[in-house]
C-alpha cells in the first residue's frame, strides 16, 4: 500500500471519465504527466443562467500524499470574478476543500461542488472580499463584471456589448498599465475610471 493515493487517483480518474457529467462535457480531468499523477488538470464548464455560462474554467489539482484522508489542493487557473474565488490567486473557499473534506468524497465530488459553487455563491463566506461586497451591494454590476471576465478569460460566448468597458480599459492601457492590472483595478472600483486610476498611481 505504498502509494495508496496514486492507486486511488487512477480509479477516480476512470470514475470521472465515465461519469454522466463528463459525457455531457460538464466536467473533465486530464493527466498532465503520466509519470506524476499528483498533478492533474481539471475543467469545469460555467453553468447555465449564471454570468459564467459557457465559460471553460481550468483548475489546478494537486493530490497530497495523504490523499484521500486530506483533501486535494484545488485552485482556479482561469481568472474568475466570484465571491468565493480569489480574483488574484484563484484560491477557492469551499468547505469540502477544507474542514469538511471526507475520504468518501472523490475528485468528481470536488468538480461538481465547484460547479455548484458557480451556480450559488456564498457571499457570507467570501474568499474575495471585494467581489463579495459588490455581489451584495450592487448585484447588477457584479453580474456585468463577472460576465465580462468570463468572456475575456474563460471564452464564454460574447452576448453583451462591452464597448464602454473596453474604452475604459483602453484608457488605462494608454497610461502604460497592463491589461490584466487595468481590468482588476476597474472591476475592484466598480468601473469608476477615476478611482481605478487613483488606486494604480498611489
Amino acid at each position: 500500500m505504498a502509494s495508496l493515493h496514486i492507486t486511488r487517483v487512477k480509479r477516480e480518474f476512470r470514475e470521472v471519465v465515465s461519469s454522466e457529467e463528463a459525457q455531457k462535457s460538464q466536467i473533465k480531468i486530464e493527466i498532465i504527466d503520466e509519470s506524476d499523477l499528483t498533478k492533474l488538470k481539471g475543467t469545469v464548464i460555467g453553468p447555465p443562467d449564471t454570468p459564467f455560462e459557457g465559460g471553460t474554467y481550468i483548475l489546478d489539482i494537486r493530490i497530497p500524499d495523504t490523499y484521500p484522508f486530506n483533501p486535494p489542493k484545488v485552485k482556479f487557473v482561469t481568472k474568475i470574478w466570484h465571491p468565493n474565488i480569489s480574483s488574484v490567486t484563484g484560491a477557492i473557499c469551499l468547505d469540502i476543500l477544507k474542514d469538511q473534506w471526507a475520504a468518501a468524497m472523490t475528485l468528481r465530488t470536488v468538480l461538481l461542488s465547484i460547479q455548484a459553487l458557480l451556480q450559488a455563491a456564498e457571499p457570507d463566506d467570501p474568499q474575495d472580499a471585494v467581489v463579495a461586497k459588490q455581489y451584495k451591494g450592487d448585484p447588477e454590476l457584479y453580474r456585468k463584471t463577472a460576465k465580462h471576465w468570463a468572456q475575456t478569460y474563460a471564452g464564454a460566448p460574447k452576448t453583451t456589448d462591452d464597448a464602454e468597458i473596453s474604452a475604459k480599459i483602453d484608457t488605462l492601457l494608454q497610461m502604460g498599465i497592463t491589461e490584466t492590472k487595468a481590468r482588476e483595478a476597474l472591476s475592484t472600483h466598480s468601473w469608476n475610471l477615476e478611482a481605478a486610476v487613483d488606486s494604480l498611481f498611489t
Binding site: 486511488r8 480509479r11 477516480e12 470514475e15 484521500p68 475520504a103 468518501a104 468524497m105 472523490t106 465530488t109
Partner: peptide
C-alpha cells in the same frame, strides 16, 4: 457513493 464506500 458506492465507489468509495466499497473500497473502505
Amino acid at each position: 457513493p458506492s465507489f468509495t464506500l466499497e473500497d473502505f
